[in-house]
Design a protein around this nucleic acid. Sequence first.
RNA 1: GGCCCCAUCGUCUAGCGGUUUAGGACAUCGCCCUCUCACGGCGAAAACCCCGGUUCGAAUCCGGGUGGGGUCACCA
Length: 566
Amino acid sequence: MTNKEWQELADLLVPEKTPSLAELEKRYPLRQLPRQAWVTRIAPSPTGFPHFGFLYTAYINFRLARQTGGKFLLRIEDTDKKREVAGGRELIIATLKKMAISVDEGPQKGGRYGPYIQSQRREIYLAVIKELIRRGFAYPCFCTPQELAAMRRQQQAQGIQPGYYGSWARCRHLGLVVIKKKLARGQKFVIRFRAPENASALKITDLIKGPLTFPANQIDYILYKSDEHGLTLPVYHLAATVDDHFQRISHVIRGEEWLSSLPLHWQIYQALGWRPPQFGHLAPVMKLDQGKKRKLSKRLDPEADARYYWRQGIPPVAIKAYILRLSDARFDDWRRAHPRQSLAHFPLQIKHLAHSRGPLFDMTKLQQLARNEIHRLLLTNPRRVYRAILSWAQEFAPDFAAIFGRRPAYSLRVIQIEKESRKDISQWQDVPNVFAYFYDELYQPPNWKEDLPERVDLAMAKKILLAFQQKFSGRETAASWEKKMRQLAADLGYAARAADWRKSPAQYQGHVGDVATVIRLALTGRRQAPDLYQIAKILGWPRVIRRVNKNAFLPNAGKNRRKCGD
RNA sequence: GGCCCCAUCGUCUAGCGGUUUAGGACAUCGCCCUCUCACGGCGAAAACCCCGGUUCGAAUCCGGGUGGGGUCACCA
C-alpha cells in the first residue's frame, strides 16, 4: 500500500477525530525533575483482591521514586472489561492506603498526566493506533477466533512456533480494496502490529538482570481489541507503552513475567519514535508445592492474598520489612545497626534487588521480622501499636476490641509490659491470647491439679498463697518484691535460689521458682508469663489480692474451669 | 517443545579471580543468663549442581550437560 492508502485506511478504521501525537506531546510535557529522579508506577488490574506480588512491586516502585526524589504513580489497567471486578479499583486504593504507600498521582489523587484509569484514556490510544496505521505499522485483521484456533492447531501439528506471523499472517498483506470490501460487509476486525521484517536482535540492559539479548519479535500481536460493536480498547502491550510514554515514566520495575514481551514493547516504542523507559524485572516470589516451585498463586495460597495479612494482623510495616529483606540482603545488617530507625531510612538499591531465582516465600521469616518491627514500634511509638491493635480487633475480633478499648491507658500499659526485652507479638492476632489474663473477662483460672509444679501439692499451694497475702503489701519495688519472694520460699522450706536447690536438692522442698509458679498461676492462670512484679503492677493490687483469694479458697479449685467473675 | 532467565547451608542471601579453613539472617540443636516463658549472649551442625576448559590460582571467567523458573491469548 502507498502512504496515501495507509492514510485513508487510518481514517476509515478510526473515524473519530483524534489529537495528533504532537498535540499529545504538548499536553503531557516532559517532567521538570532532577536527572537522578525516577518516575515509577504501579499498574494493577482491578480483577479482585490485591495479592502479595502487588504489594511487593508497589512498595519497591514507591521506595525507588521516594529515594530518588521522583514521582510514584498509580494507574488502573482496566482494558479487560470482562475480567474486571466491581469495586476492584477501590480495593487497590484502599490496600495502598493501608500499606501507607502514598501515590503522587493516581485516580484518587489526580495529576496533570491523567486520566489514571486506562478505560478513560480511549482518545489517546485511538490517536496512537491511528498514527500507527498511518505509518504502516498496524493493520486490520479479519481472522475469526475459530480461524486462529485452527491455525494454532496446524502449527502445533507441524511443531512450529505458534502465532500470527510470516505467511500465517494472512491479513498482513490485504490490499485497501479488499479491506474496504470486508469493512463494507461489516466484517469484524482487530488491529495488529506489523512486526518489522528482518529486525535485529534486541540487546538491552535490564536494571536488575543486567545485559539481555532477545531475538526480535516476529509476531503480529493484536494491539487493539474489538467486540460486536467494533474496536474497544487496546491490549496491555499498547496501553502500557503509550501510558508509560505520555505519563513520562522513567523506570518500569515490574514482574519477570513481562520479560518475554519486551521485544514487542521495544518495537512499539521504535515504531512511534519514542525513547523507551528503563526496565527492571523482578523475579517472582515462589512457593513450594509438593516438592515443586511455582509462582505464589492467589487461588492456591492463602498468604498470596493481602487480606490474609490483614486478618492475621500482620502489620504493613512487617510486610514492608519483608519486602525490603527480599529485595536487598543488606537489610538485616542495616536493621541491626539501626534498631530504632524507620524503614524509610533504609537505602534500597536497585543493584541489590534480588536478581536471581524467584525466592521462596517464607512465612517464618516474615513473622520474625514482624516480631522485631513490632518491638521497635513499641519502643518508639507505643500509642501507634495500641491503635493498630484496636483497629485490627474492631474488624476481626470485636469482642476483644470492646475489652481492649475500654481502658486505653491500661491497655497501653499492658502491651508495654517488659517492652525492653520482650518480643511476644508477631501479629495482632496473638494479642488477645498473650495478654488475656490482664482482662478479667478473659482471665482463665488455673487447673490446680494439672498445672501445679511437681514439687508443690495442693495444700502447699494454699499455704503459699496465704503467705503471699500476708507478706506482700502491694507497695513493693522490683527489688523488694524479689527479696520477699525469696524469703517466702525459704520460710516454706524451698531454696531461695534455684542454684542452691540444684546443688543439693535433698535439702529443700523445691526452689523459689516453684513458689513463684504458684503465684503466677493465681495471677495469670498460666505457668508461663512475664515477670510477676511487672504483672502485679499493671493488674493493680486489689485485683492481685482478689485473684489470690479466689484461688486460695476455692474448695476444689480446678474442677470448674470457669471464668472468674470479677 | 521454542525463546528467555536462573543455579552458594533446609530457607533468604553475601561473595564480582588470590584477603575464604566460603560470611550473615531465619529455622534447628546445645550451653549461659534465669522464679517460668520469652528476650539476650555464646557455640554447633549446615552450602559453592555436574563435567570440561582458561589461569600459577576459580564459588567467582568460558563452554557443555543437568536441574529449576518464566513465557508463548481479542489476560494483564
